[in-house]
Structure formats: C-alpha cells, structure tokens
Nucleic acid binder design. Structure first.
Lengths: 191, 191
DNA sequence: CGGGCCTTTGACTGGTTTCAACTTCTGTGG
DNA sequence: CCACAGAAGTTGAAACCAGTCAAAGGCCCG
C-alpha cells in the first residue's frame, strides 16, 4: 500500500506519478508482525519509518525495567528516533509494532540521496517535522497542564477508537502512569 | 547581529553572501525588553523567531492561573507556537523575553515567499525542525524516566551556566514543579 | 481445556503540592 | 545613595495524587 504515502506526500507538495515511482525505489516495504522490533536499544536507528497500515510505537526501558512509550505512530505517520537517525549513532529506544503493520522504511543514506534527486521532498519533510514539532509542543503542554487522570479522559475523548484498539498497559505506558492506576480511573467513571 | 543567523544557516546548507542579504530582507529585527511579550494567548503566532542574543520562552497559563514554561530558546534557536504559526490561527501560548534579547522575526507569508525564492532554505528548516523534534523526544523521555528531583540535577549538570542565568521560578516552571519544591531540593544538596 | 498474560482490587507509602508566613534580594524614585 | 515596595526565594505543616506490592480474577490463544 504505497498509495498511502503518495496521498500523504501530495497533501503537502505536488509530485508526479513518474517521480513518485522513482522515489519509491529508495524505500523498502516491510511487513512487521505484532510485537516485532524494528529498532532495538544500542543499535542505530537506520531508517525513518512511514506507517502504511497498522501501528508502531517508540519506547525505552527505564532503570526499573519498565517500558515507557514516547510516541505511537498510526497510519500516515512517520516514526524514528531522530537523534539516532540524524547522527547514525546508537539509540536509547526501541521501535515495535503494536499490531501487524505495513511499513515503508527508508535508510539514512537513501534518504539523503532521495532528497538530492528530489529537492521538493525537503519541503515535504520540513512540513512533516514542523507538524511533529507542533504535536510535541502540544504533548508537553498536556503533560504539564492536567493531572494524569484528566490526561486519560482527554485522550479517551480525542482518540476513542484508538483507546479501543490498543491494550490498556500500553496506554498507561504512554500516558505516563501504571496499569493499576489506569484501571482505577476507568472504574471511577462507571460507578 | 544577523551574523548569528548566517552562521547558523551555513552549518546546514551552503548559502552565498548575496543570497543571504536577500534572505535577510524577509526578516524584521526586533529588540525585546526583559518580560516583553512577542506573542500573547488568543492572538495568532504571526512570526517564527530566531534568537540572535538573549533568551525567549514559550509558556501558557494553566487553569489555576500558573505559568508553565514549555521551552526556552537561547542564542541560535528558533521559537514559535508551530500549531498556531502553521495554521495562522489563535494560539494558547505566550512568547516572552526572559532577558533583553535581539530577535529576527519572519512572518508566515514572508516565510513562504522566502522558501519559494530560496528552496535551499527548505532543507535548512527541515533540519532545524528535525533537530527540534529529536529534542522533544529526548525531553519527553526525561519527563517519563526520572523523578522531578532527578530532573533538576540532570538539568543542572547539563546546563549549569543557564541555571545561573535564569530565575529559579522560571526553572521550576520549566521542570514542571513548584518554586517551593525547587528550593527544598537545592537546600538538600548543600547540607 | 489450560497457561500465561492482562486487568482489577485494596492497603500502604512517599514524592510533590498547597498554603501561609517569613526573609532576602532588586530596582526605582526621591 | 538611601529607602522602600514588590518580587523572588525559603521554611514548615498538612493534604493528596499516584506508585508499589501482592494477590485474585478474567480472558485470549494455543
């Protein structure tokens, strides 16, 4: 399903069919099974990943051995550890498929070559990162402005289908609290 | 001091002197007094700001009326509310000078025109946002992995000169806790 | 049908906030 | 250059949000 990528690019820049076919040659199509890792801590984040279908997550393991999810990437989102990807140095993170996912991967040097051949794509990625940067600002605002409980309710209201789709312990890991506490919050509402 | 901007751009892309002079015409040089607001909540974030000298901060006021700082921008950092800037819709944030600062501002339509005239600058801004995105990932990781107290010690170790430079209540607001608690943490160390 | 993973429940703990009072610093006008 | 007012920093007591630990129940998948 490279069609998703094409549509996504065309939301931001004009790109012809032939050009898109050439651009695609820089990518590798990967099918990731549920829980399969695309990146493991201490390895380099070799590729930038575009999610065609499914869902990936970026997480790390804290000093207590608990997985903490930094980001989810649903259809049409890009995901990478950009610190590691930019520098091509070892990462502190894991990237894992939450469910069976189809992913378009582009490694660092292909990325650079692709941008050289198609400078228009600089604009595309500028806009993608600008959006991601905006999303991070919003995320940090949320983390600071509301209690954990409120955070859950807001997230639940904003992404109800997604909350249904993922297991609770992953949601807890993303919202920054324990599964036990999430359970407690949910049962408050019912009563 | 537009020299700072020139140096910064040249770290990422090759740009000639004449081109830079033309690029500069899209900017407005602003001198911001300490505590002066460049953006106020409910207004649109009209410009993207490059800090030549001094320090800006991005913050919002939470429902309790407390200012929460999302980001600081020191020399050679860009700052804007990118949600508001991209959409040119009202912002939830304030941008304020922490100290007297010299700022290069470029408004949204100048930004677009400049990028049209100098497509190379798409690459520059792509890299700037990619770095910022990487920094946000790291920031969120920090917020999740360590206690507030540890957060302070890490920050203090990493940016000692900056901790000296800004008032404590701003640091507390950035690290996500109260000035009282920061005071307590600091005095633990001394004894 | 069974085992392991996920979720729930409850008691206890502690890091952090809140509030209020006090002290110290800073800068501005007389 | 001093005085003073407001801002910033400190201290301590009480309250609370959320974590930890442990044990039991539910549910998915082999």
């Amino acid at each position: 399903m490279s069609q998703n990528l094409k549509n996504h690019i065309q939301k931001f820049v004009d790109i012809g069919d032939q050009d898109f076919v050439k651009i695609l040659t820089y990518f590798t199509v990967t099918d990731a099974a549920k829980k399969q890792n695309l990146l493991v801590e201490a390895n380099t984040c070799k590729s930038n990943y575009f999610v065609s279908t499914g869902c990936l997550r970026l997480f790390f393991i804290n000093e207590k051995g608990v997985e903490q999810t930094i980001q989810f990437a649903l259809e049409n989102w890009w995901l990478a550890d950009y610190t590691s990807f930019s520098s091509q140095k070892p990462s502190d993170f894991y990237i894992q498929a939450v469910e069976r996912s189809e992913v378009l991967a582009i490694d660092f040097s292909s990325h650079e070559k692709m941008l050289q051949e198609f400078p228009k794509m600089e604009r595309y990625f500028r806009l993608v990162h600008q959006r991601a940067h905006a999303a991070s600002q919003f995320r940090i605002k949320s983390l600071y402005s509301v209690s954990r409980e409120e955070l859950y309710h807001q997230f639940n209201k904003r992404y109800p289908e997604f909350v249904q789709r993922i297991p609770q312990y992953l949601l807890a890991s993303f919202l920054g609290f324990t599964p036990e506490y999430l359970s407690e919050i949910r049962n408050k509402r019912i009563s």
